[in-house]
């Protein structure tokens, strides 16, 4: 079936339009608040995206993956998840605020509960295309990382622009946001959360295990990703922000590596005899 005739393509297109509708007013408001800060943010976050894109592709080069699908994953996170998140996160935030008395925890839990499923939905949508070649859990991790990267970049751009509106030196604030939310947090931010949840999704849609095991693995990993996201955003250790940033980030990264490294070792073991006999083409098809 061609991509154009694929029903998921049309759903993706519809959601992309809705995502743009949700996102554009936020971008316009961010631009109007501080045009110079916003434009500097666009430039810096674009540079960050290029670097992160290259790093993820480089780190995942054991298997060629289509560039178009990678772009679709990034766009899902950058446009669809952030655009839909405008309504979803607000709604979940209202519900969480009504149930959880602590404002800091309510916001943190709302972010995890609303954003993680929305991002993971993009990985699921891509898994329905045979052309994405999502066969192993590492493929799901790869696309999850790109969905998360898209979300992280656009969300951070909006945060940076908002910060630029309130400060005396907007340019400095934008640069600080790129360093803090981009460079320093790159290993324990949205790409990590979504990649982690995507491991459970891989079990659900690709494994031949029993339905109970597949669903338990899927829900367990999704809840784990939500919980880590909530922990990272939570007021825990807020008396010292830098300690909180690195301590909570280290926990997120450690949990991710505990799941990811065994998958990678297993894939390397399975690929070793094959690569000697049948060399896969080195170039990535698009």
């Amino acid at each position: 079936m061609s991509i154009v005739r694929h029903p998921v393509t049309w759903v993706y297109a519809v959601l992309l339009v809705i995502g743009v509708i949700g996102l554009v007013p936020l971008l316009i408001a961010a631009f109007e608040g501080s045009p110079a800060g916003f434009l500097l943010g666009v430039v810096l976050w674009t540079l960050f995206t290029v670097l992160a894109w290259w790093a993820i592709r480089r780190f995942s080069r054991t298997r060629p993956r289509p560039r178009l699908a990678t772009l679709a994953a990034f766009a899902w996170g950058a446009i669809i998840a952030t655009g839909l998140g405008r309504w979803a996160t607000g709604g979940v935030g209202d519900i969480a605020g009504a149930v959880i008395p602590d404002e800091g925890w309510a916001g943190a839990i709302a972010a995890g509960v609303s954003e993680e499923p929305l991002k993971l939905l993009g990985v699921f949508a891509l898994s329905l295309f045979a052309a994405t070649r999502m066969r192993s859990a590492l493929d799901f991790v790869y696309y999850g990382a790109f969905v998360g990267l898209g979300f992280m970049v656009v969300e951070s751009l909006l945060y940076a622009a908002q910060g630029a509106q309130t400060g005396d030196s907007p340019m400095t604030i934008v640069v600080e946001y790129v360093i803090l939310r981009g460079i320093l947090a790159a290993l324990w931010s949205h790409p990590t959360f979504t990649a982690l949840a995507a491991i459970g999704l891989a079990v659900l849609v690709r494994s031949g295990a029993s339905a109970v095991r597949r669903w338990l693995a899927f829900l367990g990993m999704l809840v784990l990703a939500m919980a880590l996201h909530a922990l990272f955003d939570s007021p825990v250790l807020e008396s010292n922000m830098m300690v909180a940033f690195f301590a909570k980030g280290a926990i997120v990264l450690a949990v991710f590596l505990a799941f990811y490294l065994p998958l990678r070792r297993r894939a390397a073991r399975e690929a070793a005899p094959l690569s000697e006999e049948t060399q896969e083409p080195a170039s990535a098809s698009s």
Partner: peptide
Amino acid sequence: SSGAAPAADAASPTREPLA
């Protein structure tokens, strides 16, 4: 360690994956 990693790559010959 978890069951997630091995289960993710272990396809049963008799059951078609959901995808």
